[in-house]
């Protein structure tokens, strides 16, 4: 059982926002796959008096508006995984969503929840960072949009205020000639908490050089982020094993520089190097360039 807590459900956003703005301690939730586990762990970890179910607010539309893909924050991982727009415009996100937990979890857990929970191993975050995702936040007093790269401030912490609700995620697709790679490392094949996640988007120009590259990594740094040092090094280079290995080394150096040498470093150092190489190879193999023979 979960300790006594009030359950509130609203079907209109403004009414939901009123609850969040009230003095009462209210926690919004959607799928409950993280929140309900947290609630049961201790008597009342959130020190909140009520749960606000946002599933009835209709925040699960997925559509394109002037080249931006808009994803309702309460879209389940199943809805994201099966969505045709996302399959064609944000394939890395399709892959990431399809690898989350199990069918049971994907049927309940939501993309917004995955981001707001702000776990360093959240599977959708490395994918969304590649598409420069923005988080749309609403409250009774203000609407604002925050880049995903600034939304998560430390493990399990975000910029979200008590009276605010994330309503949608905006992502910006890249052209079709970009190749992509996504690798989730886990201890088993399913219902898997990621040990490390690496994602990449790559574009190769007519001369066969890397024209644009985006690389992100989860569970490598305290906050899942792009690895700009790796991206800078790769631009203008011809994609080959030696360069990809160098990229892996830079990522590992950056990891140690940020997090220090920890008990897990000997493992993570060699693994991050290898995963960067794999993901870059995967992205390169998907690059479409007719000029290359």
């Amino acid at each position: 059982m979960i300790p006594e807590i009030e359950y509130i459900k609203e079907t209109e956003l403004d009414l939901a926002l009123q609850h969040l703005a009230s003095d009462k301690k209210v926690i919004p939730f959607a799928g409950g796959t993280d929140v309900l586990i947290e609630l049961r762990k201790s008597k009342n970890p959130f020190d909140r008096k009520a749960l606000l179910d946002v599933k009835g607010l209709g925040l699960n539309d997925i559509y394109i508006h002037s080249d931006t893909v808009i994803i309702g924050a309460a879209s389940t991982h199943t809805e994201v995984e099966d969505n045709e727009i996302i399959k064609s415009k944000l394939p890395v996100l399709t892959k990431a969503s399809s690898l989350i937990g199990s069918k049971q979890i994907r049927n309940r857990g939501t993309i917004g929840g995955n981001i707001i929970n702000a776990s360093p191993c959240a599977d959708t975050v490395p994918a969304l960072l590649l598409y420069d995702a923005q988080i749309v936040i609403r409250s009774l007093s203000e609407d604002r949009t925050v880049p995903l790269s600034e939304f998560i401030t430390s493990p399990y912490e975000t910029v979200l205020q008590k009276d605010e609700l994330v309503t949608e995620i905006r992502a910006f697709p890249v052209a079709e000639d970009y190749g992509w790679g996504y690798y989730k490392l886990g201890r088993r094949g399913a219902v898997n908490i990621s040990r490390m996640t690496v994602a990449a988007l790559m574009k190769v120009d007519g001369e066969g050089k890397i024209n644009e590259i985006r690389v992100s990594a989860g569970s490598v740094f305290p906050i899942t982020s792009r690895i700009s040092d790796v991206e800078k090094m790769l631009v203008g280079e011809k994609p080959k094993a030696e360069i990809f290995r160098r990229a892996g080394e830079i990522a590992a150096e950056k990891m140690i520089e940020t997090s220090g040498r920890r008990w897990s470093t000997p493992y993570k150092e060699s693994v991050v190097k290898e995963l960067i190489v794999r993901v870059l190879n995967e992205a390169y193999s998907r690059c479409k360039n007719d000029d290359l023979s």
């Binding site: 979960i2 359950y7 459900k9 799928g31 409950g32 796959t33 309900l36 586990i37 749960l51 179910d53 599933k55 199943t78 937990g101 199990s102 069918k103 049971q104 979890i105 049927n107 309940r108 219902v191």
Partner: peptide, 24 residues
């Protein structure tokens, strides 16, 4: 939500009944 012993079908789809409130 790891073992699936509590699986029920919600509108025909499998979910973990340990991770859903009755109210939902």
């Amino acid at each position: 939500g790891e073992c699936g012993a509590c699986t029920v079908l919600l509108d025909g789809k499998p979910v973990n009944s340990c991770l859903i409130l009755a109210a939902q």
